[in-house]
């Protein structure tokens, strides 16, 4: 058995889907140029000393990678709708291999989304040191773990009709609560809710490039908790959906 071949076709098929490309990769990119390009000479956004192209690049990197990761759910729901899952279950492909291919594909998309935004940022004048690029990217990739599990979870819970709006709604809400679009107030109930969201810490991860300090003990704890809870729920949803002898 060659799981690598299976995974390769899985990736090939994902990257061939035009609609998916437009929504998952094109949308954050278009949004970036729309917001950042007119303000590209703004070097001190809101008195923070951060340039507009940089600020929106890191915000959209969090948004774009989150969307890319959750889009695994849409593909899973689509496969379930046409019965492809049942077909796979009568092959020697194990659940672990199946899920690994899904997560790997999700990560590849997230990386592509990130790379496109970083290149666009550079075009609009963003300059960072190599260590800043790397530490930001690394922490984002770790921060995507709960989203990888969440993608699998919703893919096995929702139907192909309902998953599009759910992904759209959830990412929009998470993006707002995470402080993608505008900074969250430093205290108050919104601040508390926001801090409990995985998207908040994903945005904090990308804010490393803005001189942020990353996660700290609180961030790691909350993200670990999200990763564990989402993984357990995803495993349960998968098992319930595919109960086999």
């Amino acid at each position: 058995m060659k799981v690598a071949t299976y995974t390769r076709f899985e990736i090939l098929r994902t990257f061939r889907n035009r609609r998916f490309f437009i929504f998952s990769l094109g949308f954050p990119l278009a949004l970036y140029f729309l917001i950042a390009a007119p303000n590209r000479h703004e070097t001190d956004i809101g008195g923070t000393g951060i340039s507009a192209p940089l600020y929106f690049m890191v915000g959209l990197a969090a948004f774009g990678t989150m969307t890319a990761m959750l889009s695994s759910g849409a593909r899973i729901a689509g496969e379930r709708a046409v019965g492809w899952n049942r077909q796979l279950r009568i092959t020697p492909l194990t659940a672990r291999q199946y899920l690994r291919a899904k997560v790997l594909t999700g990560y590849l998309l997230a990386l592509t989304s990130m790379a496109l935004l970083f290149v666009s940022g550079t075009i609009l004048g963003v300059r960072l040191s190599l260590s800043e690029w790397l530490s930001m990217s690394g922490l984002i990739l770790v921060g995507l773990i709960p989203f990888a599990a969440a993608g699998i979870l919703i893919g096995h819970l929702l139907t192909v009709d309902s998953i599009g709006p759910v992904i759209g709604g959830v990412t929009a809400l998470l993006a707002i609560l995470g402080g993608t679009w505008f900074p969250i107030a430093a205290s108050g109930p919104l601040h508390d809710i926001s801090q409990a969201m995985p998207s908040y810490w994903l945005v904090q991860a990308s804010h490393v490039a803005l001189g942020g300090s990353g996660w700290g003990a609180r961030g790691w704890t909350i993200m670990t908790a999200w990763a564990v809870v989402m993984t357990i729920l995803a495993a349960r949803a998968y098992r319930r959906d595919t109960a086999r002898l």
């Binding site: 076709f9 090939l12 098929r13 994902t14 061939r16 889907n17 689509g78 496969e79 046409v82 019965g83 492809w84 049942r86 077909q87 009568i90």
Partner: peptide, 12 residues
């Protein structure tokens, strides 16, 4: 096996 209900995944 060929199951009763089932279509093919797209883009391949």
């Amino acid at each position: 096996a060929m199951l009763q209900t089932g279509a093919l995944i797209h883009d391949l």
